[in-house]
Measured scan of single mutants.
Amino acid sequence: TTYYDVLGVKPNATQEELKKAYRKLALKYHPDKNPNEGEKFKQISQAYEVLSDAKKRELYDKGGE
């Protein structure tokens, strides 16, 4: 599973699309609303952290993490 899959976006997604997808999923899986989905929330946050940063995203796209 790639970070793009976690957020449900395509690899060519814009920053705005990433932000929108992250917010939607973060609300859905937030531990306050969904106590059993803490791990999913962490995955979503990690994916967004990497993909929202241009340098980290470039490194990730080249095969790094």
Rank of each mutant, 00 (worst) to 15 (best):
E37K: 08
Q46E: 15
E37W: 12
E16A: 11
T1N: 14
T1L: 14
S45W: 13
P31K: 06
G63K: 10
P31W: 05
G38D: 10
E39R: 07
L59W: 13
E58L: 08
A54N: 09
K20F: 09
K55M: 10
A47H: 01
L18N: 00
A26P: 00
N34W: 07
L7P: 00
N12V: 04
E16T: 09
E58T: 06
K24F: 11
N34Y: 09
V6W: 12
Q43E: 14
K56D: 06
Y3R: 01
K28R: 09
K10H: 12
K42P: 03
K62E: 07
P31A: 09
R23D: 15
N34C: 09
Q46G: 05
K62T: 09
K55C: 13
Q46V: 12
T14Y: 01
I44T: 02
D61T: 02
L7S: 00
E16F: 05
D5S: 07
K42M: 10
L27R: 12
D5P: 01
H30D: 12
P35A: 07
K42D: 08
V50W: 06
Q15G: 08
E17A: 06
A54F: 10
Y3W: 09
K24G: 08
N12E: 09
K20G: 07
Y3K: 02
K24H: 09
H30A: 09
Y22P: 00
L59H: 07
Y29H: 06
D53A: 04
Y3P: 05
Q46D: 13
N34R: 07
A21V: 05
Q46T: 10
Q15P: 12
A54D: 10
L18T: 01
D32Q: 08
K20M: 13
E16L: 09
Y60L: 04
E17D: 11
L18M: 07
L25T: 02
E17F: 02
E49D: 11
S52H: 07
Y4T: 01
E58R: 06
A26G: 04
Q46H: 14
K40N: 08
E49V: 05
Y60T: 03
A13H: 02
D32K: 10
T14R: 05
A21Q: 05
E39H: 08
P11S: 12
E49A: 12
K40P: 03
G63F: 15
Y3A: 04
G38E: 13
G64K: 10
V50F: 10
K55Y: 12
K62D: 06
K28V: 09
K28H: 09
D61P: 04
G38N: 12
E58H: 09
L7D: 00
K62S: 12
L59N: 12
T2V: 06
G63P: 07
L59C: 11
T2Y: 10
L59T: 08
N36V: 10
E17K: 04
Y29T: 04
K10Q: 12
L18H: 00
G8E: 07
I44V: 08
E58N: 09
F41D: 01
D32M: 11
G64Q: 15
I44C: 02
D61E: 04
A54L: 12
Q43W: 09
K10V: 07
K62I: 08
D32H: 10
K62A: 11
R23H: 15
D61V: 02
Y48L: 03
K28W: 06
Y4R: 01
E16V: 07
K62N: 12
K42W: 12
K56G: 06
E49I: 08
E16Y: 08
G8M: 07
T1D: 08
G8T: 03
N12D: 14
K40V: 09
Y60N: 03
K33A: 12
A13C: 14
A54V: 13
A47W: 01
Q15R: 08
S52V: 07
L27G: 10
E58S: 07
T1F: 13
Y60Q: 03
L7N: 00
E49M: 09
A13G: 02
H30L: 06
V6Y: 07
F41R: 04
P35I: 07
V9E: 01
Q43A: 13
N36F: 11
G64F: 15
V6A: 06
L27I: 12
N12I: 06
H30R: 09
L51W: 00
K62P: 04
G64L: 15
T2C: 15
K33I: 15
E39C: 10
A13P: 02
F41H: 04
A26W: 15
Q15Y: 12
Y4H: 03
L18R: 00
Y4G: 01
A26N: 05
Y29Q: 02
K62G: 08
Q43G: 06
P31T: 07
L25A: 05
Y60E: 03
G64A: 14
E16I: 07
